[in-house]
């Protein structure tokens, strides 16, 4: 599989080493299954589902935090729909040329091109960001629909798993691809955290501070594309954007600092993914939908917790200084 070989080459890890690591991960979960009697951990596809889920629950809120606080929450939706077009491109090319390209790889490429297009459209046409997102979203979905209808024979059948996600379709190759995406995303965010934070908080001040805002916007958009494709495997195109937004929104309710918010969003996402995957196994529900519903439940809990917790903070601050008393609000 091209997708399997290309990504480790980029990350610098040989394919075999990643496969070896996957085997050890399986051994670990099997041991847990033996010790705890958890039936779901006896299946290989569940091992992959949990690994992929855990990785997604780190990278989606990591990027989502930088999106939500710039009021770009919808970019995930737009890119998810273009990723769907990317899948259609991959399936179409495979069907017509008889190649074996992973549709996830074409989805990454198409989504990243779309991510750049969103930034460029808003830069060039001076439009609001949500306008360019809406344009790219529609284009993506239209392109996907047209390509699928062109060869509706075998194609339409295969598309369902990308639209709705499926635990059992997570293959070893897909997992390796996701590990690659995960490494790239965490490394890039780790290296550019300060710049991303500054740009997210105040674009103009960031420019005055000498940060090339346009480039960081593009970087964020492309990282978003990677997350979307990574998460597509179990969430499905339609629900993928929820992972970028819902845990982040919940974390913002309970966290005070940006670092706390980042950490809390990852914790909430992990909780949603682990509980969601478990529930979807035992009740045989769709994984993406279950994870999102759990995440929304957690979000509601965070809102309630935030409302309880934020009041003492406001009371403690007021009246502590003369300026506090005359606070102009």
């Amino acid at each position: 599989m091209i997708g399997g070989r290309l990504v480790p080459a980029v990350v610098g890890l040989p394919d075999d080493a990643l496969m070896w690591l996957l085997d050890r991960w399986s051994d670990l979960l099997l041991a847990v299954a033996d010790g705890s009697g958890l039936v779901m951990l006896e299946y290989g596809f569940m091992h992959r589902a949990f690994l992929v889920g855990i990785l997604i629950a780190v990278m989606a809120p990591l990027i989502g935090t930088f999106l939500v606080h710039r009021q770009l929450a919808l970019i995930g939706d737009a890119l998810a729909h273009t990723a769907f077009a990317g899948v259609a491109v991959g399936l179409f090319v495979n069907a017509t040329l008889g190649t074996g390209i992973s549709p996830y790889l074409t989805a990454v490429v198409v989504a990243m091109i779309a991510a750049l297009a969103i930034e460029l459209i808003s830069e060039v046409t001076d439009a609001y960001n949500d306008v360019s997102m809406a344009i790219v979203l529609s284009t993506g979905f239209a392109l996907g629909a047209v390509l699928i209808s062109l060869d509706s024979g075998g194609l339409a059948v295969g598309v369902n798993q990308y639209l709705f996600g499926n635990l059992s379709t997570v293959t070893n190759e897909n997992t390796v691809l996701l590990v690659g995406l995960f490494s790239v995303i965490t490394l890039v965010v780790g290296a550019t955290y300060k710049q991303l934070l500054y740009v997210t908080f105040d674009e103009t001040a960031a420019r005055v501070a000498g940060i090339d805002v346009r480039w960081y916007n593009r970087i964020v958009a492309m990282l978003t594309a990677m997350v979307v494709v990574g998460a597509m495997q179990i969430m499905g195109v339609i629900l993928v954007a929820a992972m970028l937004v819902v845990p982040v929104a919940g974390a913002a309710q309970v966290a005070r600092s940006f670092r706390e918010a980042l950490l809390a969003s990852v914790v909430l996402a992990e909780l949603a993914v682990l509980v969601g995957i478990t529930l979807s196994f035992y009740y045989e529900t769709t994984a993406g939908g279950t994870i999102v519903l759990v995440a929304v439940g957690i979000y509601v809990g965070a809102v309630l917790l935030g409302k309880l917790g934020s009041d003492p903070d406001a009371v403690a601050g007021a009246g502590s200084t003369s300026e506090g008393r005359s606070a102009d609000r």
Binding site: H69, F201, A205, A252, S257, F258
Partner: peptide, 16 residues
């Protein structure tokens, strides 16, 4: 902005 960020974090940006 409704961004969760503390005063200390904002001031630290001056060091970036």
């Amino acid at each position: 902005t409704k961004m969760p960020i503390t005063v200390a974090e904002v001031v630290l940006m001056g060091r970036f």
